[in-house]
Design a protein around this nucleic acid. Structure first.
Length: 594
RNA sequence: GGGGGUGUAGCUCAGUUGGUUAGAGCGAUCGCCUGUCACGCGAUAGGUCGAGGGUUCGAGUCCCUUCACUCCCGCCA
């Protein structure tokens, strides 16, 4: 028999009444009636109410004992009378009468209460993460994370994928995010990089003939944090398949995600086939490549209206002439919304750094007219044209903004979300997935005006390889795709370019000559020259999947030991200074601190 | 690097127009209480009002600087 417990704290029921039991756990809560003490004992599994009265020799000691002390109790399971059942917990029909107890782990005065629904500052939670993790909600989140990961593992096994580990110490890559670097002792002056993703390795695994690979892979990127982005490290379900086209990857991942979300959440899936939206369409209709499809609002381009003679909105007309565009969001049946609703949105837009959002509402007496501060600038004909483009009816309103395309996309995208929330159009009880497909291979860097890879340089360009229009690289699309759910980018992937000659051509466009490519990507290029299968894959973000399933807005709520926004671990005191000896061994010297 | 929010007791927060000795709940300590499950009741301790500077007869409150945490922009192939 186990020394510490015969049962866990969620096991005992009425059928156990009369049994002598051993329970161990934390003191969750005490209720002291002077001559009678109730004590809730908690472990990973649940809570059992224990009871002791003043006749017992242990009574005085238990009365004084600190919450969160770890104790072992020896006692007898007894029946509760019906009026005293606790329906909140599964063990609520019994209690354990304490015969004696021993302390297994003492507890100092707590810096934060464990048994409480209060919220605490991140600082105190992260510093005392081991206490924070005892609390119900986050304890359940972390447990959920474990279950989701093991479910995914077993599913991937069923689909015939093999799980492999890839190196953590690898080489720095010129593209992408900032690397975390690790100095090499044996190779003075040289550095390893932690992998931003096992990108090259997974392709090499395909070249090695393993056909289907996956890994719950740690990824390291030295970029600034966001609510849905941990600083430093995160996990991806990294997977890669040989002899596949985009469709084959989609099938596997759609199945996996749908099974996972059905199993671990009660929220409705808007559609079991993920709709596919091209990058270009998404940027136009939603202003972003991660649209929240729960939001029914759509953005329309109405730039052409501002070339008309019968539109006198001179500010916009002038901007349009110099290359700006006008885009708008239509809201249904908002004619009775108070002025404050419209002005609130306009004010909000200005706070976001835009020049505001103009608005008007379609109304009708003997003819169509627009009500609102800028309504007078539009003729009836122009209004009818806008109604046609936006599928608007009388009573609907239009919010419009004018700017250069990039800024315009940003503000209309944010406005779509803001207006959708204000009008309560977003159903929080659903998951709306979609594929974003047909990403451009290249993009123009705004600052340098040079052409660069827009996503992954190893993606396969679309089209027959001899017919691709290399003269107009910005037109080249890639077999590059993202999964988005509720406005959160869950994963991105691609069919890879396994043809070295084609890869040299593409890298040349991005400004790398053959020699540079050979140097920077020697492992890859070399491998692709020795019989590489066509292959492709994707890498869904585990943390974000769990975040959605746990209904959390912040990734730290599903991460066991996260760092804070400044990439510090307040509990372990990382990063920390190192000794002169360590520096010397690594051939490093520090610039003097300012 | 930039913008917003927050910072008052161990924890969560209140604090009026600048005005006497800065409050509450939880927690801690002490006492009372035999059916609670957010037990109840009474008492006690606990404060560099994030830090520094300024304005003022007087600053938790106003101004400036700065620090920490957080959200966002930039960044994240």
């Amino acid at each position: 028999m186990n020394k510490y417990r015969s049962h866990n704290c969620n096991e005992l029921r009425r059928k156990d009444v009369g049994q002598k039991v051993l329970l161990s756990g934390w003191i969750n809560k005490k209720r002291d009636h002077g001559n009678l003490l109730f004590l809730d004992l908690r472990d990973n599994y649940g809570i059992t109410q224990c009871i002791i009265n003043k006749d017992s020799s242990s009574f005085k000691e238990l009365e004084k004992i600190q919450l969160e002390t770890v104790i072992k109790i020896e006692g007898k399971v007894i029946d509760r009378s019906k009026e005293t059942f606790n329906k909140e917990i599964p063990t609520g029909e019994i209690e354990v009468s304490i015969n004696n107890f021993s302390t297994l782990g003492t507890c100092k005065e707590l810096p934060l209460p464990v048994f409480s629904d209060q919220e605490y500052s991140e600082e105190i939670r992260l510093k005392y993460r081991f206490l924070d993790l005892r609390r119900k909600k986050i304890h359940e989140n972390i447990t959920l994370r474990s279950k989701v990961i093991s479910f995914i593992r077993s599913e991937m096994g069923k689909y015939g994928f093999l799980e492999f580990q890839t190196p953590i110490l690898t080489s720095s890559s010129p593209e992408g995010a900032r690397d975390f670097l690790v100095p090499s002792r044996l190779n003075p002056g040289k550095f390893y990089a932690l992998p931003q993703a096992p990108q090259q390795f997974k392709q090499l695994i395909m070249v090695s003939g393993f056909d289907k690979y996956f890994q719950i892979a740690p990824c390291f990127r030295d970029e600034d944090a966001r609510a849905d982005r941990s600083p430093g490290e995160f996990y991806q379900l990294d997977l890669e398949m040989s002899f596949v086209e985009q469709e084959d990857v989609f099938n596997v991942v759609e199945n996996l995600l749908i099974n996972t979300f059905k199993k671990f959440s009660n929220k409705k899936l808007v559609s079991e086939k993920f709709p596919r939206i091209s990058f270009a369409e998404s940027m136009l209709k939603y202003g972003t490549d991660k649209p929240d499809l729960r939001n029914p609002l759509i953005i329309n381009d109405i730039t052409e209206i501002f070339f008309r003679e019968d539109v006198s909105f001179e500010i916009f007309k002038k901007l349009v002439k110099s290359g700006s565009k006008v885009r708008c969001i239509k809201t249904n049946d908002t004619k009775n919304k108070p002025r404050s609703f419209f002005d609130g949105i306009d004010k909000w837009a200005k706070e976001q750094g835009a020049s505001g959002l103009a608005y008007f509402t379609f109304e009708e007496d003997d003819k169509i007219f627009a009500k609102g501060p800028v309504g007078k600038f539009f003729s009836e004909e122009a209004l009818k044209e806008i109604m046609k483009i936006t599928h608007a009816e009388v009573g609907d309103s239009i919010f419009l903004a004018c700017d250069k395309q990039g800024n315009l996309e940003k503000i209309t995208s944010m406005a779509r979300e803001k207006i959708g929330r204000n009008l309560n159009l977003i159903d929080e009880n659903t998951f709306a997935f979609c594929w974003i497909v047909d990403y451009p291979m290249f993009e123009l860097n705004d600052q340098t005006k040079k052409i660069q890879f827009s996503h992954n340089p190893f993606s396969m360009p679309q089209g027959e390889k001899d017919k691709i229009n290399f003269g107009n690289p910005l037109e080249i699309l890639a077999y590059q795709y993202d999964i988005v759910c509720n406005g959160i980018e869950l994963s991105s992937g691609a069919i890879r370019n396994h043809i070295p000659e084609l890869m040299y051509k593409l890298f040349a466009i991005a400004g790398y000559d053959r020699k540079q490519v050979d140097e920077k990507f020697s492992g890859m290029i070399n491998a692709l020259s020795f019989g590489a299968p066509p292959h492709g894959g994707i890498a869904p973000g585990i943390d974000r999947i769990v975040m959605l399933l746990a209904n959390e807005k912040n990734i730290r709520e599903v991460t066991m030991f996260p760092m804070n926004q400044n990439a510090q671990d307040l509990m372990m005191n990382a990063p920390s200074e190192i000794s002169d000896y360590q520096l010397k061994e690594l051939n490093l010297s520090l610039k003097s601190k300012k």
